Deep mutational scan, measured.
Amino acid sequence: MLYRITVRNADGEKLEIVVEMSEDEVRALAEELRKAGYEVRVEPIPEGEEP
């Protein structure tokens, strides 16, 4: 499935990426980023919607 991941650092800089991963993989990635001090938001992209 496609997911949009938005990551912000302490300075407020934002990075937005689209990935194709399983829900478990995305959850693990988000958890690791949060542990590293980043603010993370994950949104699933519905099938048929443009990323």
Rank of each mutant, 00 (worst) to 15 (best):
M1C: 04
M1I: 06
M1Q: 06
M1L: 13
Y3G: 00
Y3C: 01
Y3I: 02
Y3K: 01
Y3R: 02
R4T: 02
R4N: 02
R4I: 03
R4W: 06
I5D: 00
I5H: 00
I5Y: 00
T6E: 05
T6C: 04
T6G: 02
T6V: 08
T6R: 07
V7P: 00
V7M: 15
V7W: 15
V7I: 10
V7H: 02
V7E: 00
R8C: 05
R8Q: 10
N9F: 14
N9P: 03
N9W: 10
N9M: 13
N9Q: 08
N9C: 03
A10K: 13
A10F: 09
A10T: 08
D11R: 13
D11S: 15
D11N: 11
G12K: 03
G12F: 05
E13A: 14
E13D: 10
E13G: 13
E13M: 14
E13I: 14
E13H: 14
K14V: 10
K14P: 09
K14Q: 12
K14F: 12
K14D: 08
K14H: 10
K14I: 12
K14G: 06
K14A: 08
K14M: 10
L15Y: 14
L15V: 09
L15H: 08
L15M: 08
L15T: 11
E16N: 10
E16V: 06
I17T: 07
I17N: 02
I17D: 01
I17F: 08
V18A: 03
V18R: 06
V19R: 10
E20Y: 15
E20I: 09
E20L: 13
M21K: 04
M21Y: 03
M21W: 05
M21S: 04
S22F: 08
S22T: 12
S22A: 10
E23M: 11
D24C: 05
D24P: 12
D24N: 08
E25R: 06
E25F: 09
E25A: 14
E25V: 05
E25P: 01
V26L: 04
V26Q: 01
V26Y: 01
R27G: 09
R27V: 07
R27P: 01
R27W: 14
R27L: 10
R27H: 12
R27T: 09
A28V: 12
A28P: 01
A28M: 08
L29D: 00
L29E: 01
A30T: 07
A30D: 01
E31T: 14
E31A: 11
E31M: 15
E31F: 15
E31W: 15
E31G: 10
E31Q: 14
E31I: 13
E32I: 15
L33V: 01
L33D: 00
L33M: 08
L33A: 02
R34Q: 06
R34C: 05
R34I: 04
K35A: 10
K35F: 10
A36L: 07
A36M: 11
A36P: 04
G37W: 15
Y38V: 03
Y38M: 04
Y38I: 02
Y38P: 00
E39I: 14
E39H: 15
E39C: 08
E39N: 15
V40N: 00
V40D: 00
V40L: 02
V40H: 00
V40S: 01
R41K: 08
R41H: 08
V42Q: 01
V42K: 00
V42L: 05
V42R: 01
V42E: 01
E43Y: 12
E43W: 08
E43C: 10
E43T: 12
P44A: 09
P44T: 12
P44M: 10
P44D: 04
P44F: 08
I45P: 03
I45Y: 10
I45V: 10
P46W: 11
P46L: 14
P46S: 09
E47T: 13
E47H: 14
E47W: 11
E47A: 09
E47N: 15
E47C: 03
G48H: 12
G48E: 08
G48L: 13
G48C: 03
G48Y: 10
E49M: 11
E49Q: 09
E49W: 09
E49I: 14
E49K: 09
E49Y: 12
E50Y: 12
E50L: 11
E50T: 13
E50F: 10
E50P: 12
E50R: 12
P51Y: 01
P51I: 06
P51M: 02
P51S: 12
